[in-house]
């Protein structure tokens, strides 16, 4: 594995739902440390692609390489343990739990001592639990959200829920973070704040794939952008390049406003 090999590599990823091709021969790469934008009109297959990468959906054909290994047919929990974490278009926090409990779960792959060591009151388990709580507190501190630690997740303000969901994904110390429309429902200043937050996360060494409709946010944070339309890649390049690509303009203007 050379350090400049791409972190994620999709080759001819295809996903059929019955006769419908939600994804057709999608191929692209994400370099380590990059923020890659994934844009396209509604129904282009963006969320399906995230589901395929994270293992919540099984591709019909094609391969997904991550960090040098083939993750194409691995189940979701194995993919997560290799270092891919994600958020959802409609926020999916564990609403009845506190923020801390959500984060502890986010760190599940980083813990080892389960029921048996807990039953036997092993010091190892107690140490690990303490370490886990310290780690999540430190993460919240770093993200300036420590004050929300004991709040019930479902009772938080909308913007805070978005942020906590991202932090929960970060709790796993992922190599790759998948964000599904993180700015949905946010106003302009909240979105700008989110952009700075995302750049912060990248500066901590996390590679990011982000689905987004807000072109300002895309221009603010992305190094590269891939454009999907009807399940196919129609353009790829820097944010400036794709915005002037006639195919992209046609894809967006050739149909109703989103």
């Amino acid at each position: 594995m050379t350090p400049d090999a791409p972190l994620l590599q999709l080759s001819s990823v295809t996903k059929h739902y019955g006769g419908l091709a939600a994804l057709n021969q999608v191929s692209f790469e994400i370099a380590r440390g990059d923020i890659m934008g994934l844009i396209g009109p509604n129904g282009a297959g963006k969320t399906t692609l995230l589901n395929v990468i994270s293992g919540l959906a099984q591709e019909t054909s094609g391969t997904v390489l991550f960090n040098g290994g083939d993750i194409t047919s691995l189940p979701a929990h194995r993919i997560a343990s290799l270092g891919i974490a994600r958020t959802y278009q409609n926020i999916r926090l564990f609403n009845e739990m506190t923020v801390e409990q959500n984060l502890l779960l986010g760190r599940h792959t980083r813990t080892r001592s389960g029921m048996a060591s807990s039953l036997l009151l092993l010091p190892r388990q107690r140490r690990e639990e303490r370490q886990l709580r310290d780690d999540t507190a430190a993460l919240l501190q770093r993200m300036d959200m420590l004050a929300r630690r004991d709040a019930i997740a479902g009772e938080l303000a909308y913007g805070d829920q978005r942020r906590i969901e991202i932090i929960r994904a970060l709790a796993a110390d992922p190599l790759l973070l998948l964000l599904d429309e993180p700015s949905a429902g946010m106003n302009e200043s909240e979105t700008e704040q989110l952009g700075r937050f995302i750049l912060d996360v990248r500066n901590q060494g996390v590679t990011i794939l982000i689905i987004e409709h807000d072109m300002n946010l895309i221009s603010q944070v992305c190094d590269q952008v891939v454009v999907l339309n009807f399940g196919e890649v129609i353009s790829q390049g820097t944010p400036q390049q794709v915005q002037s690509d006639p195919l992209v303009i046609e894809a967006y203007l050739g149909q109703e406003e989103d």
Partner: peptide, 9 residues
């Protein structure tokens, strides 16, 4: 689903 994508088997 969310549990699985957090590495829970």
């Amino acid at each position: 689903h969310v549990a699985a994508s957090m590495g829970i088997n």
